[in-house]
Amino acid sequence: MKYIFPINSLALFFLLLTFTACEKKSDTGDLTINLVQNIAGKPLIINEWVYQSPAGHPYKLRRLQKIYSDFELINTEGVSIPFSMKHYFELGRTETKNFVLKNIPAGTYNKIRFVFGLNEARNKDNAYPDELDMINFKWPTALGGGYHYMRFEVTADSMGSGKIKDFNLHTGATYGNQNYLNITLEMEDMVVDGNNHSMDLIMDLNEWLQNPYVYNFETFGFGIMGNQDAQEVLKANGVTVFSVKGPFPENEFNHLK
């Protein structure tokens, strides 16, 4: 009788061990999205005269800030998994260059969808009052309110003539016009079964300036926040700006790549 207590404890220990060992591993996964930018395939360098616009202006990049929101992953059966979120990116700020879509259910995904900018439900004056990045990104009430979608700022040489001017391509809801973009991209099959992935979401900045319309800096001038015609051109061109690379399964050796 005196051995009952230790024997019971031992049995309980093994029972617990059995349960723990058999606990089902979560089959959800995470997807890290790396925001990658280039200009006609060239890497981004600030303040260097290394780019040429499709209209023929040599230019240098001064600033790039942008917002992505409301990602969706679509599986091979056409079912969409939405992620209610927004992400602010600023060139030069490492902490903004990627983000994670978490707890993706098991399945095979072959499309990704997102909003470039903010849709009308999100894009309200002071919707994000306690986020400093967003305070900095406000779009004046007088011009329609809400927030910028993007600040793409360059200094251009007028057709190589030596006449240097600055051009700020700021997109947003000019006078209430919804200029955000709904983008859907095909991607390689991503099989989620408890594993994580990463992918590159690529933006070619020169594509804002062509396809289908050649955007001439001189035509629209320094600022376009109050110019819906310019916003329409960028909105139309924006369709071909984005592409993806991956997704790639993440493993412990990924950092060595």
């Binding site: 406000k138 004046p140 009430t141 007088a142 011009l143 700020n168 700021h170 320094f222 600022g223 376009i224 926040m225 109050g226």
Partner: peptide, 9 residues
């Protein structure tokens, strides 16, 4: 003030 003409905002 509130347009890019003055670009204070």
């Amino acid at each position: 003030f509130f347009t890019e003409e003055g670009d204070c905002f």
